[in-house]
Nucleic acid binder design. Structure first.
Lengths: 252, 252
DNA sequence: CTGGTCAACTGGCCTGACCAATTAAGGTAC
DNA sequence: GTACCTTAATTGGTCAGGCCAGTTGACCAG
């Protein structure tokens, strides 16, 4: 609560600055950036630092680095404020609401297309999940496999990716710490039952039923979430700052 | 077709290798990686290369770098195969199919919630779009604003972000080159008409109509896309490799 | 047992250098 | 004059070695 201190690493500051110049249009899309050596001089930092900043921007998809040629602006929308940078992200409830909307539509569509092989894949995830409700990490993995498995029925890689990405957002430090309070064998078993209902509706080709079951599942998930520690949200301010990660605390 | 050669940049190969070790569980979540100097020695590369690879993984959110302490595995799912790395990504048709599914659901939901202010925002995007159909960049921006604007009606930041991200995927070099073949004032005007239909349905609170209009829009978009150069897909093999970008070709 | 000091790591950053890919200018053969 | 080849300048990719600053845990004084 005292001093933010923060002292961001230099290459991140450089990345931020260049990103800003791109966003403001000062560096137009398609334009070539100054050479690394020039950038280093203009910014008064060393070339390795500039390189590291540019790699950040490249991973974010903002620039395209071409050996021997130069560095080009690809697009200006930050779009994917990716990875670690996405810490100040939407809250858990917002995420669950979004998942409800999207995954319901996916479940609805999947119900009309599911083939025996697809159902077998879902079943595999379900049995696996049932066997590891006591393993916090493994059960999450099975949970994820089930949700992406439904998207896989449609056979669209983008849908699989988006579903997985939204699921993984619960892995952020902030979310993870909250989750540890209410996730346990009991709640996982309840979630598993809801999964089974979804699976059955899809297997039966019942689109409306699958949609409803998915909605019920995510609504219940949200409810479990809020009931267990709704009060924590009032005193929450320092979000994902998990200092002193208290390593040995697995399960108590 | 000859030699893959590939010659991927070294730091990417290193990043891939470490990512693999994380995905396979060889490096468990929470575990500390060897020091940069040790990694460099084990991998027979220099420390700057290792650093660049680690920065990639940090931006992707897989590891957490803590100064003076070490590098820790945060999660194992690649999740966001972000930015430039997503080049070998889903194809345009797959993307449009995913957008249809998701944005239809969003439009449907938005129709039931839209307030006058929201409609005004959409109208702003529409008029702006109408005024810049000749500016390839500006019109894209207005297009984007319309689609994210619909998501904004629901008031869920995650939905806005996901919608924007999927839209931005057309900015990848591969997609952009294809798009330049068929995007023009004429097609943009048609897209604008379809936008208006969506806007009207939402403004009228017609959920089913909004869903249908959105589906029609994205289906037409897909059709425009395939008709203009469907044949290109047969001879397409080298995807986003855009050699010789033919800089001056804007509009012809 | 508490508190402070100190030394050993570890990441952050820098200098300077060389290699490889790209690109364009210039030269040569036709 | 044109087409092709050669060549040199430019630019990113990688390396080596070094110093600084933050972190951590062991050790020691109180």
């Amino acid at each position: 609560m005292f001093s933010p201190v923060e002292s961001r690493r230099l290459y991140r500051q450089v990345a931020d600055q260049i990103r800003l110049m791109i966003a403001s249009g000062e560096l137009a899309v398609g334009q070539r950036l100054p050479a690394e050596r020039d950038l280093a001089e203009q910014l008064s930092v060393s070339r390795p630092t500039v390189r590291e900043a540019l790699i950040v921007l490249e991973v974010e998809g903002l620039v395209n680095i071409r050996m021997g040629s130069g560095i080009y602006v690809v697009r200006q929308h930050a779009a994917a404020v990716t990875g670690a940078e996405r810490e100040p992200v939407e809250g858990p409830f917002e995420l669950l609401q979004a998942r409800a909307l999207i995954e319901c539509a996916i479940a609805e569509e999947a119900a009309g297309r599911a083939k025996p092989d697809d159902i077998a894949l879902l079943d595999e995830a379900l049995t696996r999940m049932g066997g590891v409700v006591n393993d916090a990490i493994a059960v999450l993995d099975a949970d994820r496999a089930f949700h992406t498995g439904i998207a896989a029925i449609i056979g669209n890689a983008t849908l699989i990716r988006v579903t997985g990405e939204m699921f993984d957002m619960r892995m952020t430090p902030y979310f993870a710490r909250l989750a540890s309070h209410f996730e346990g064998p009991t709640t996982w078993r309840r979630a598993l039952d809801e999964h089974r209902a979804i699976r059955d509706a899809i297997a039966a080709g019942d689109a409306a039923g699958a949609k409803a079951a998915m909605r019920a599942h995510l609504t219940m998930s949200q409810k479990r979430f809020s009931e267990s520690f709704g009060e924590e949200f009032s005193g929450e301010e320092e979000r994902g700052r998990n200092k002193r990660p208290s390593k040995g605390t697995t399960k108590t």
